[in-house]
Amino acid sequence: MSTGAWVVVAAIALAVAFGSYRALTDGRFRGTHKVRDATAPVVEGSDPVVEEVALATVSKPPTTWTHVTTAIPEAKLGEKATLLQFSSAFCAPCRATRRTLTEVAEVVPGVEHLEVDAEHHLDLVRALGVMRTPTTLVLDATGREVTRATGAPRKEQVLTALTRS
């Protein structure tokens, strides 16, 4: 076989392996990402003025939600849980994800769906360790990340993840 033919075989093997892996893992909720600089605001908290301000605005210790409100001040935390979706312009599965999460937020009381354009909030993307879109984070009532899924999740996967919050 020519070198080119071997490249064809390798490319097919790589595509099938990677595609199958993604098809299996996409939309599955598992794990979280440690909030970066999580200790920094606590140190600031030793200053009574800062502490008061921090207490007035967000519950401490700092959570994923602290980062979200820093980037998007008008964001609203769900009473029970928040579905935080990261999307980008060049992302076909983001649309399906938006539809699924909007539906869940409408059906389940106290759940908010918040969609963030990742491209325009890169600091938040870095702080929360978002690598690809769509990424969906499930936050509990205090704004702490419970779990996350990359790739479009199915409705029942979202509902199951919500029971953990």
């Binding site: 998007i72 937020a105 769906h113 918040l114 969609e115």
Partner: peptide
């Protein structure tokens, strides 16, 4: 409810 609308063109 979606709080932040998407602002990219062509959607």
């Amino acid at each position: 409810m979606s709080t932040i609308a998407q602002s990219h063109p062509g959607s």
